[in-house]
Nucleic acid binder design. Structure first.
Length: 746
RNA sequence: GGCCCUCUGGCGGAAUGGUAGACGCGCUCGACUCAAAAUCGAGUGGGGCAACCCCCCGUCCCGGUUCGAGUCCGGGGAGGGCCACCA
């Protein structure tokens, strides 16, 4: 984004980034966020990104970083790689409107797939992550167990290797389909079909992948003239090419079983290919014959017409057939992953330079560790077209080979920003360390992260990279566990006044600044926390905000109206009676509610509601005796402290009011969070409801005096009910402490 | 198409399986004021009733478990998210 903005308004990204940092920092400080600013880090700073480079070198040594041929969106007008988001309708460039094509370019990649099983297994430990996030990760990693089977091409030495998760249906295979890009396409096509196949492949090559494989795209294909031999029964089936088969998944070749796969069925109907049922439901009605099948039956069931494997449950058939294929040497059970390696080089300026030097004699040579950081040169010309910006900075590009000293060129591509965010959590441990990324001793003490709060949009990409990187750091001996964080909280999305997600992209961001000017930081904080629980999406609206301002004003007036209570003797506290004993109970319950809301589920909204209730209760009371005033003082004092996390500025002042001189410093230093007395928190009455034959017939209450076990009062009340019911048969009693006891009387 | 989430007053939202709608917004009425703002007080799910006593109905719909369901289970609907011709 910084680079795109730079292209748009001609300013250097460094300048804008620095400005943004200043304004964000100021805004956060104004809102009173209690960050440890000593540990602030800037990922655009060489002091930080040199460690990106260091990690790159370490991973290169271990084979985790490698060079590969990758695919990218290439704008034919700008002559550069552009992002998916910049490709607009009709496959054109957002900026210049020229057609965008797919181009194969060399790129650097992290071998994250080597960690696939590990990343999958690790999810089981993450009991305190939202389940939907772990599910998304699981799906993204996408392990699918299946089998590879070789189909010989009739009259040729070639073999088509197909991947299937349903080898149990192989006797229902009536044709084989190759992806248009499959290397065997040319070899197997016979002379009679050559022209047609070539035209089809050409057309597919020109069509955008999304369009070709999109939901509405009709299934289409051509026959190659070739036949493949099903190794299980020796049947010859035609070989087709079709748009819906993806070269990058599996083996790029599919055995089609139209009776048991919907795509295959649609294709078979269109091209009049046979449909053969080989799996019958384990229970219920038998399937009609293939020609009459209304839709593909994709459930597991029992095999039939499957040679020696007939009559087996699907799962058993898969096991036996996989084993048989292996034994006979024409296949085996395999595992496929949806997860791809992470291509991380970008043809961009504003990123971490990749520490590689290209030598005419030695090829790509890593920059020696002692020469780090490779500093991003400030004098770049960023146009968003043509070569990567760094290629146009000769002072940067021209260097010498670290191995032979001959003239050589630096890598001009930079790293994905996801690299920066993959390990920043660890950098906070020792943000100024210039000997290593961070101190392992600190990692031992602080990691893993206790609570990580972030947006749900990070559920797959960032959080997967983050988990991957943490494992790498573990391998490097820098950290001591695989998982970077124990508990994850995904906060809700804030929608702007127009209903769209609030973001810079839509220009609908409501800056807190003006609201803070008008109503103060405390009101704004309370407003945001009171709106909804943190994980819930909210539609921004100013309507509630006045209520929170009013609440603070109400608290303020309350403290001034009750100044006479500030000096009340604490010794009088236990004598509180009547309404003021009630007040004490309410105070202690409030402490409990707010405390538990803070510690547990981050239920700040109900915590604030509890404080409002306490304030409302205080307004209704007029203290007359010392005991009364002591109870009020206790409430005010708790109120001031409990308010601190929500409205720190107000809390500071209020605490000073109640506790006198120097209290402010104490609050800021180590004034303990108020504790509550369980006896006062307990119910003051217990209620027993008497229900006779399903009808509520009345209820009995028993008072609980302070300190008395609730259960005892409950038991007394129960006795009274039993006495009342004497002579009747009690059929069933459900005893529920705390709430109600219902009797069913027959 | 797959996976997942959500559904409670006019609105944001409360409710360890136990009096649904806490708290706040909005609205109505009243007090204060020449008047307004601010503030304070009362009311505010729907229906019945002379009655703010009381009665009935109410947490998207249908069914189940339970003495008791907004909450648990099964099925359906609507809205949203992520992935998507993954073989």
């Amino acid at each position: 984004p910084a680079e795109n903005a730079a292209i748009k308004d001609g300013r250097h990204p460094a300048e804008r980034t620095a400005e943004n940092i200043v304004s964000f920092r100021a805004e956060m400080k104004r809102l009173g966020y209690s960050f440890d600013w000593e540990r602030e880090i800037v990922t655009a700073d060489p002091g930080y990104y040199r460690w990106n480079q260091w990690f790159f070198l370490k991973m290169l040594e271990r084979g985790i970083v490698y060079r590969r041929q990758g695919k990218a969106n290439w704008c034919t007008g700008c002559n550069t790689v552009i992002a998916n988001e910049q490709v607009v309708d009709d496959n054109r460039c957002e900026r210049c409107g020229s057609p965008v094509v797919e181009k194969v370019i060399p790129e650097w990649a992290f071998r994250i797939t080597a960690f696939a099983q590990d990343l999958l297994d690790g999810l089981d430990q993450l009991g305190q992550w939202p389940e939907r996030v772990t599910t998304m990760q699981r799906n993204w990693i996408g392990k699918s167990a299946g089998a590879e089977v070789d189909f010989a091409v009739a009259g040729s030495a070639e073999r088509i290797k197909v991947f299937t998760t349903r080898v149990d249906t192989i006797y229902g295979c009536t044709y084989v389909v190759l992806a248009p890009e499959h290397p065997l396409v040319e070899k197997v096509t016979d002379a009679a079909h050559r022209a047609e196949v070539k035209a089809f492949v050409e057309r597919m090559r020109r069509t955008d992948v999304l369009e070709r494989t999109g939901e509405e795209a009709p299934k289409e294909g051509v026959f190659t003239g070739a036949f493949a031999v099903n190794p299980f029964d020796g049947e010859k089936v035609p070989v087709w090419i079709a748009n819906f088969v993806l070269a990058e998944y599996g083996t790029g070749a599919v055995m089609s079983v139209p009776a048991h796969d919907q795509r295959d069925l649609e294709f078979a109907r269109k091209y009049r290919l046979p449909v053969r049922v080989v799996i019958q439901p384990a229970a219920g009605e038998r399937l009609p014959p293939g020609d009459a099948l209304p839709r593909a039956s994709t459930e597991d069931g029992v095999t039939e017409s499957s040679g020696p494997f007939s009559g087996l449950p699907s799962s058993k058939a898969r096991d036996r057939m996989g084993a048989f294929a292996k034994e006979q040497g024409f296949g085996e059970a395999t595992v496929r992953w949806h997860l791809r390696d992470w291509g991380f080089s970008r043809q961009r300026y504003w990123g971490t330079p990749i520490p590689i030097i290209y030598c005419p004699d030695h090829g790509p040579v890593p920059v020696p560790e002692k020469d780090l950081p490779v500093v991003l040169p400030p004098q770049a010309i960023i146009t968003g077209t043509g070569e990567p910006p760094l290629a146009k900075v000769p002072e940067f590009v021209n260097t010498t080979c670290p191995r032979c000293g001959k003239p050589a060129r630096r890598e001009v591509e930079t790293m994905d920003t996801f690299v920066d965010s993959s390990w920043y959590h660890a950098r906070y441990l020792s943000p100024k360390d210039d000997q290593r990324p961070f101190e392992p001793a600190m990692a031992k003490r602080w990691l893993p992260i206790d609570v990580y709060v972030g947006g749900p949009e990070h559920a797959v990409m960032h959080l997967l990279y983050f988990r991957f990187w943490h494992r790498v750091m573990h391998q490097l001996g820098l950290t001591f566990e695989d998982e970077p964080c124990t508990r994850l909280v995904t906060q809700g999305i804030v929608n702007g006044p127009d209903g769209k997600k609030m973001s810079k992209r839509w220009g609908n961001v409501v800056a807190p600044g003006p609201m803070v000017d008008r109503l103060g930081a405390d009101t704004v904080r309370l407003f945001m926390l009171f709106a909804a629980p943190p994980e819930k999406d909210i539609d921004w609206s100013d309507e509630q905000v006045d209520g929170l301002f009013r609440f603070l004003a109400r608290v303020w007036r309350l403290f001034h109206a009750r100044q006479d209570c500030f000096a009340a003797p604490a010794a009088a506290l236990p004598q509180a009676a009547g309404a003021f004993l009630e007040l004490r109970r309410r105070t202690h319950r409030t402490v409990k509610r707010v405390t538990e809301g803070m510690e547990g589920d981050m239920k700040y909204n109900t915590g604030i509601a509890a404080l409002m209730e306490l304030v409302n209760a205080l307004y209704a009371l007029e203290p007359a005796t010392d005991a009364d005033r002591a109870a009020v003082r206790e409430a005010l004092s708790a109120l001031a402290t409990l308010l601190a996390p929500f409205a720190p500025h107000a809390a500071e002042e209020l605490w000073h009011e109640v506790q006198g001189e120097a209290a402010r410093d104490r609050l800021l230093a180590d004034e303990p969070w108020p504790s509550f007395d369980p006896a006062l928190v307990a119910a003051d009455v217990v209620t027993i409801a008497v229900q006779v034959n399903g009808k509520l017939r009345g209820e009995v209450q028993a008072p609980v005096s302070a300190g008395e076990a609730e259960v005892r009062a409950l038991a007394e009340a129960e006795d009274r009910v039993r006495a009342h019911l004497a002579g009747k048969t009690v059929r069933k009693v459900v005893f529920v402490p705390k709430r109600l006891v219902n009797f069913v009387v027959g």
